[in-house]
Amino acid sequence: MLLKKLRVESSLKVLESLGIDEELKETLREMLKLRLETLDFYKKVSAKKKYEAVLAFSGGVDSSASAVIGRELFKIKAVFCYSPYLHKESYLDYIKELTKKLKIKLEIVEVDLDRIYKESVIENRYHPCGRCHKIIEESIYERAKDFVIFGDLLAFGSLSFYKVDNFYRINLPSFFALTKDEERKILKSENIVIEQGYGCSLLREYHIKNKSYKFTIQRILREVRAKVISPDEGFKNILHILEGEK
């Protein structure tokens, strides 16, 4: 609780430094103040004037919980970046159904990951996640309106909410100091349960072919140390990537 309090206080300081609309700022301020009292903080206060926001949507727990909170603040359009290297085509049906449940608009964008697949999986020159994330991030930014929402759990403080060019980026879970389990509770209150393994098809193929797990495990351990996931969940995630498709 002390750690959550420190993170919420940090978010309040960041909020005061931003040049966003005062009415939206007050709504966010009230949500942050309610955050430590109840997990329903986002239901207690709602923005009267809703700016347009693009949500980087993967269909996982983080982006889905961001949608539930974010729709109380913004007019949200989810942007799902598709690549056959990342997902099976049937996954698109799941994404369409999930966004209907979340009551948000959806845009599907195909991204080119041929080079990343070749250089990471085939040639084992680097871990794919950083470069893949950069391509997806750029695709989201190209469609930015007033705000862009990401489901990052780790970007605390000044990295949770900041200006990029002519729009603002907000990493909603980290801004509100959420944990993965709290996100699941938020989704459960919407009758949404998401059960997924760790990572995408590209990452799993990289692990299986190259037997290279170090950087992925380091990422998981960062989440454990930051207390956004439990040690048990971290251990489960590590087992999942070591076992591959078993």
Score class of each variant (00 low, 15 high):
195 E>L: 08
84 P>D: 04
105 K>M: 03
96 K>A: 02
103 K>P: 01
89 E>Y: 03
150 F>E: 05
115 R>V: 08
25 K>N: 12
58 S>V: 07
49 K>V: 05
35 R>V: 08
123 E>C: 01
182 E>H: 10
109 V>S: 06
235 F>N: 11
52 E>A: 05
68 V>P: 12
106 L>Y: 05
105 K>V: 00
141 Y>N: 06
176 F>S: 12
217 I>Q: 01
64 S>L: 10
12 L>S: 15
24 L>R: 15
122 I>Y: 07
42 Y>V: 09
190 E>M: 13
131 R>V: 04
109 V>N: 11
159 L>H: 06
99 T>D: 04
116 I>Y: 09
197 G>L: 06
51 Y>S: 01
138 E>S: 09
41 F>V: 15
60 G>K: 06
3 L>G: 06
136 I>N: 05
2 L>I: 11
23 E>L: 07
83 S>E: 07
13 K>E: 15
104 I>A: 03
209 K>T: 01
241 I>T: 09
204 R>G: 02
237 N>E: 13
210 N>T: 00
17 S>P: 12
7 R>H: 13
34 L>M: 13
214 K>F: 02
12 L>A: 13
187 L>M: 08
179 T>R: 14
27 T>F: 04
241 I>L: 14
87 H>N: 15
212 S>N: 14
2 L>P: 05
54 V>M: 06
245 E>K: 13
136 I>L: 12
44 K>T: 12
65 A>D: 09
110 E>G: 04
60 G>R: 08
154 L>Q: 01
198 Y>P: 04
243 E>D: 07
7 R>F: 08
63 S>W: 10
116 I>P: 12
149 I>F: 03
100 K>F: 01
236 K>N: 14
164 V>K: 13
149 I>V: 14
75 K>F: 04
65 A>R: 10
185 K>Y: 12
118 K>S: 12
235 F>G: 10
204 R>F: 06
8 V>R: 12
2 L>S: 14
148 V>E: 04
199 G>Q: 04
50 K>R: 15
54 V>N: 02
13 K>T: 14
33 K>E: 15
60 G>Q: 08
43 K>Y: 08
91 Y>T: 03
130 G>M: 04
69 I>Y: 11
5 K>D: 12
52 E>S: 11
46 S>Y: 06
126 Y>P: 03
134 K>M: 09
229 I>F: 05
192 I>Q: 10
226 A>M: 08
64 S>C: 09
16 E>F: 09
212 S>R: 07
40 D>Q: 14
64 S>P: 11
40 D>G: 13
169 R>D: 00
27 T>A: 14
100 K>N: 05
173 P>T: 11
177 A>L: 10
118 K>W: 07
48 K>W: 01
84 P>E: 07
245 E>N: 10
112 D>L: 07
137 E>G: 06
25 K>G: 13
123 E>F: 04
72 E>V: 06
210 N>G: 00
216 T>K: 04
84 P>M: 03
203 L>N: 04
86 L>Y: 04
182 E>P: 03
81 C>V: 08
84 P>V: 02
222 R>L: 11
128 P>E: 05
35 R>T: 07
203 L>F: 06
151 G>L: 09
95 I>R: 02
121 V>N: 06
13 K>P: 12
86 L>P: 03
56 A>M: 05
4 K>H: 09
91 Y>M: 03
102 L>M: 08
190 E>T: 11
61 V>A: 07
101 K>T: 03
92 L>N: 01
218 Q>S: 09
80 F>C: 11
